[in-house]
């Protein structure tokens, strides 16, 4: 079955480190996905109104592009894209009236009935590739690295599209274990990073940053892994606004640690795009070669 890859806007701009490391990892695992040639922004958030379908057009158009590409599945890295596309897909599958209205509105597009399946990249790793195959392919196990998962919201909620239990997920813990690192749970793993409120209520957002970072520190973790560029911004980049004692808590996209463990070319990890502390941690643990300091 052909699997299309939907990058999403942020993966092509601010989160190149996410995309490049993920694609390099897939190449190392010998697993093929095909990037969609034509696509639009998914809308980033699923519209929660029942009387307004206009905001469903963007994700449904993306699903139509995947259908046009002959894909049986479309996969995403960004948690927000995943959530939006998966929920729009359910809408198109389950609500006949809305499906008809949307199809009739988009006279310029072929009809869509939810034929394509939306899967998150982590689901590909777990369900299609499998932790065993990843374990067998490790070139550089992350032994001794204490890593905590930060699921955030969009991978888990609502449960209809969650890739794991909304209250007791294990997928990222299993992932971390598969890399040879030490999976470490912490109190704020399924909490919200503050999301888009970084723009509207930045003080409220920073309280979220502080809460997550402090909870992670309390569990004695070396780093967080996550799957959402907005979480990465709020928990990673926004740490500079906190001036927290003890230096920065490194934050990685899960795919970056995967690429390192699989021995993929280090350029694919683009650690230069991470917040402070990420690259330094891996250097210090001897997992990547020390870079020449500017």
């Amino acid at each position: 079955m052909k699997i299309s890859y939907y990058p999403g806007c942020t993966l092509k701009s601010k989160a190149r480190n996410f995309e490049d490391s993920a694609l390099a990892s897939l190449a190392a695992l010998g697993f093929e996905v095909t990037e969609l040639e034509r696509w639009n922004c998914c809308g980033a958030l699923f519209s929660l109104t029942t009387d307004d379908l206009l905001h469903q057009l963007a994700p449904v158009r993306v699903l139509i592009r995947a259908q046009q590409a002959g894909a049986g599945k479309v996969t995403t890295l960004c948690s927000q894209c995943y959530n939006t596309l998966a929920r729009a897909n359910r809408l198109m599958r389950e609500d006949e009236e809305k499906r008809n209205t949307l199809n009739q509105f988009m006279t310029e597009e072929p009809d869509y009935h939810g034929q394509v399946e939306v899967v998150h990249f982590l689901q590909l790793l777990r369900d299609e590739i499998g932790w065993e195959r990843i374990r067998a392919a490790l070139k550089r196990p992350l032994t001794g690295l204490k890593v905590a998962p930060f699921y955030g919201c969009m991978l888990l909620r609502p449960k209809e599209v969650g890739i794991d239990s909304p209250v007791k997920p294990s997928i990222l813990m299993d992932f971390i274990a598969a890399l040879g690192a030490t999976p470490t749970d912490f109190a704020a793993a399924e909490e919200c990073c503050g999301a888009y409120q970084v723009l509207a209520a930045p003080e409220a957002g920073l309280k979220r940053t502080r809460r997550v970072v402090e909870a992670a520190r309390a569990s004695g973790v070396d780093a967080l892994v996550l799957s959402c560029p907005l979480c990465e911004y709020n928990i990673g980049k926004q740490q500079q606004e906190l001036a927290a004692p003890g230096g920065a808590l490194p934050v990685f996209y899960f795919s970056q640690l995967l690429a390192v463990a699989l021995g993929a070319a280090e350029e694919s990890c683009r650690f230069d795009l991470n917040a402070a502390g990420a690259r330094e941690l891996l250097e210090e643990r001897g997992l990547i070669a020390a870079a020449a300091r500017k």
Partner: peptide, 28 residues
């Protein structure tokens, strides 16, 4: 509107990921 896109500081607009802007403008 509850947020003015043109009123967000330029350095913030340059720094945040696109999904932050899309999400905030959708909600606000």
């Amino acid at each position: 509107d509850r947020i003015n896109p043109r009123g967000i500081p330029a350095e913030t607009l340059a720094a945040v990921p696109p999904i932050a802007l899309v999400a905030a403008f959708r909600k606000l």
